[in-house]
Simulated scan of single mutants.
Amino acid sequence: MKIRYIAYIAIALILGYLIFNKLHNAGKKDAAAQGGGGGAGGKGGKKGGPVPVNVQIVKDTVVNTAIDITGSIDPNEQVNLVAQTAGNITGIYFNEGSHVKKGQVLVKVYDQDLQATLKQTEYQIALAKENEYRNRVLLQKEAVSKQEYDTSLSSYNTLKAQADVVRAQISRTVVRAPFSGVIGLRNVSPGGYLSTQTSIATLVNTDPMKVTFNVPERYRPFIKAGTKITFNIASSRKNFSASVYAVDPAVDPATRTITVRARAANPNNEITAGGFAKINLVLEQSPRAIMVPTQCVVPDLKSSKVFIARNDTAYVRNVKTDNRTDTQIEITEGLKPGDSLIVSGIIQMRPKVPLKIIKVLH
């Protein structure tokens, strides 16, 4: 009897559990159904509504086709100063790192022996001149022969030529600045012996500076005398400009490039010789180009496309592209000035999608 009651209680508990579980699951399904219906309704309302976008009015712009290359900076003139005559240095007349003018005396070499030779020759010239004059007067009186007069004239002219030679030798004992510029550190000292192989110092002219660079040969038609370039250097944040003045007529067979040289004004010595230049070279200018933000162009298998807004609706346009920059791309076909180009919400764009224009960019 006791076992029967236990069985009845167990059956009742199992039935109670099954009924409770069924009612609990039914409640969850109703709640899920209600929640899912609200979500579907919300998504459907969002999907069916207009997409907020910004548009840009397409217009023609001036586009420069340019390339970025590197080059080197050289002084306008540079020379290692050397003497033409060997000898002891009797004077140094410049300060290291100073500016010197063309023709300024920089170094003097011993020339006393040459000065003495010149003085001796000048005395002989004076005597020969008197002798020539005397014979010329006597020749007019037929007191001497023509041969005697010619001998005296030849002696006079020979001595003058000898004097010119000595003067030239003396002038070579003076080292002068061949052009105006800044002189570097000297390698000689007063009293030292200066040979014709010794470098006295380096003289450079830094205004203007020369910018030398190479460009691929296909760009040769775009470069000529007067072409402008801009460049910057590591030691300054400024952008400098230069003008091409020479183009090498031959193509380097190893690199297939041509060498170009430009001049850059350097009145304040901001550009340093031997530096490295990052050059922007404008090859051509297109006054009627359509440039659009890069993110507007959607690449396709065969072409590219953009979306335009018309009557608050999106329409697709197939386009052809050309030059690119970091942020823009040129459209050569498919757009015309005045079109309203969609520039935001591109990922949601489909043909005939309704739009809500938030902002119009010009």
Rank of each mutant, 00 (worst) to 15 (best):
residue 9 I to R: 11
residue 12 A to E: 04
residue 12 A to V: 13
residue 13 L to S: 09
residue 22 K to A: 14
residue 25 N to A: 07
residue 32 A to W: 02
residue 37 G to L: 09
residue 41 G to N: 06
residue 42 G to N: 05
residue 43 K to H: 10
residue 43 K to R: 15
residue 47 K to T: 13
residue 49 G to D: 03
residue 55 V to G: 00
residue 55 V to A: 01
residue 59 K to R: 06
residue 66 A to C: 02
residue 69 I to W: 05
residue 72 S to L: 06
residue 80 N to M: 14
residue 87 G to M: 11
residue 87 G to E: 09
residue 91 G to Q: 13
residue 92 I to N: 02
residue 101 K to E: 13
residue 105 V to F: 04
residue 109 V to A: 12
residue 110 Y to D: 11
residue 116 A to S: 08
residue 118 L to W: 13
residue 119 K to R: 14
residue 120 Q to L: 13
residue 121 T to M: 08
residue 123 Y to N: 11
residue 125 I to W: 06
residue 128 A to Y: 15
residue 129 K to E: 15
residue 133 Y to N: 15
residue 137 V to A: 12
residue 137 V to N: 10
residue 139 L to G: 03
residue 146 K to E: 12
residue 147 Q to V: 10
residue 149 Y to I: 00
residue 151 T to F: 10
residue 157 N to S: 05
residue 161 A to E: 07
residue 169 Q to K: 13
residue 169 Q to A: 15
residue 169 Q to S: 14
residue 185 L to S: 07
residue 186 R to F: 07
residue 188 V to E: 12
residue 188 V to D: 09
residue 191 G to T: 11
residue 192 G to L: 03
residue 195 S to H: 10
residue 203 L to N: 01
residue 206 T to R: 06
residue 208 P to Y: 01
residue 209 M to V: 11
residue 215 V to R: 01
residue 216 P to Q: 06
residue 216 P to L: 07
residue 219 Y to N: 04
residue 222 F to S: 07
residue 223 I to Q: 01
residue 223 I to N: 01
residue 225 A to S: 09
residue 225 A to R: 08
residue 228 K to T: 01
residue 230 T to S: 15
residue 239 N to F: 05
residue 255 T to V: 15
residue 255 T to Y: 11
residue 263 R to C: 03
residue 266 N to W: 02
residue 267 P to Q: 09
residue 268 N to R: 08
residue 269 N to T: 03
residue 272 T to S: 12
residue 275 G to N: 04
residue 284 E to T: 09
residue 290 I to L: 05
residue 298 V to S: 03
residue 302 K to D: 13
residue 307 F to D: 06
residue 312 D to R: 06
residue 314 A to Q: 02
residue 319 V to G: 00
residue 330 E to A: 05
residue 334 G to I: 00
residue 342 I to K: 00
residue 343 V to A: 02
residue 345 G to R: 05
residue 348 Q to T: 09
residue 362 H to D: 14
